[in-house]
Design a protein around this nucleic acid. Structure first.
Length: 125
RNA sequence: CGGGCAGGCCGAGACGAUCGCGGGCGCCACAGUACGAAAGUACGGCGCAUGAGGAAAGUCCGGGCUCCACAGGACAGGGUGCCGGGCAGUUCCCGGUGAAGGCAACUUUAAGGAAAGUGCAACAGAAAAGAAAACCGCCCGAAAGGGUAAGGAUGAAAAGGCGAGGUAAGAGCUCACCGGCGGUGUGGAGACAUACCGGCCUUGUAAACCCCAUCCGGAGCAACGUCGUGGAAAGGCAUAUCGUGGUCCGCGAGCCUUAGGAGACGGCUUGAACGUAUUAGAAAUAUUACGUCUAGAUAGAUGAUCGUCACAUACAGAACCCGGCUUACCGGUCUGCACGGAAA
RNA sequence: ACCCUUGUCAUUCAAAGGUAGGAUAGCUGACUGUUAAUCAGAUAAUACAGGUUCAACUCCUGUCGAGGGUG
């Protein structure tokens, strides 16, 4: 087990406020390196863990569209997961203007964003 | 054949391969982590079957379930409103009656009471509600004035309609028919239908107040129940122990209880369930028999790639659970009916 | 997921069954050497769809949108 989901609003806010971000054509990525001893529900978070959150705007997409967006982003993340460093919190947000993109376009877009943040080698994507 | 009417069924397009996700069951402890001497257990590994809808939606009704409140009655407030049946129950469903629309099939219908009472009916119009009223008209009259509701004019609506008699002119003033009201008879379970008789009969609005009949306690799974570490809260115990201190009080630590914020677990899926047959019924529906188990997540599980077929793929995602209603929707398909045309 | 409130000119408030009305902003004209202020004028709205009524912003029903609350 390498990844676990972000749960609470303050965790997302922490990533948005203190983390770095990059914006692509279809999505934006926020990343924060967790400090030592970060807790979740009273328990210490394993520093070898990656934590992720996948977001979509409720005003632009219905429940079906949001599920679709999360699935596409989760699948893209799954293929890139082993190359990403551990101990970080990631938040991916889909920009739904103009509809939900194709999987391949979304996947390459995610790779570009992550390489721009120097978290991944841009060559392999 | 054409354009219609009504009803039913299906609907993440289907199949295969590789990787991946949720809960369930079985096996494993071989690999990794933790506790263990080990066995084993948790996170795990492997395998198997399984995994969103007809509307899951809107939250408009009705329930189940949970907590709170509760002697009994009345008022207030709110819902419903033709008749009969169905249902756990309903603002639902089925059948019927009346009314409106359509050539028809058929559709729509909050459809009790206006003679219990109150209100309102703008503008226009003589008059908008006590059988009241006279602007034009008609008649009588020299005039003043009177008679008159047929006709005109106003209006959404003008005091039953229409024809004949009658008259100075007219008028239910009289009569036939029609409409309405009341009574009686007949048919029907009833709403009602129909026949006869009667007197001559004051509009609309109750989705205005109201009257009559009938029903209704409140909140909602973020309900509610159990547990609740570190740190923080309240009360008590004991100073027997430790720290501070020469000693006591005190303070801190300690022990117990309460409460319970974060959080965890339960509630969480077998139910007025579904399928097939049978019997009763005009139908909704009900009875009986057999069979089936069919998501339970907790930031929220169905995706990606490739191949073949089809190529148009809509609306759209369970969140405590059911029964209805309403709304959104690419299409496919089946059944029945009426009208028009053609042919026989 | 559940519960509640609300919808009228571009903005902000009225009208509560009978001609949708102000104020601000914008437009046109007048006044002025010019602008402001002032005066006059026109434009502009009942979220949408049905129903009740002679007549609906108002009453009833259903959609759509906006806002808020509950861990």
């Amino acid at each position: 087990m390498k990844s676990v989901a972000l749960r609470f609003n303050f965790e997302f806010n922490r990533v948005y406020r203190y983390g770095k971000f990059a914006t692509g054509r279809y999505l934006s990525v926020h990343v924060l390196k967790r400090r030592e001893g970060t807790t979740q529900s009273g328990y210490k978070v394993d520093p070898e863990l990656r934590r992720t959150g996948f977001c979509a705007n409720k005003k632009e997409l219905g429940a079906v569209g949001r599920n679709r967006a999360r699935r596409l982003m989760r699948e893209s993340y799954r293929q890139l997961e082993d190359k990403l460093p551990t101990g970080y919190d990631y938040v991916f947000t889909l920009k739904a203007k103009g509809g939900i993109p194709d999987f391949h376009e979304l996947s390459t877009d995610m790779g570009k964003c992550l390489s721009r943040l120097d978290l991944i080698d841009g060559v392999s994507v």
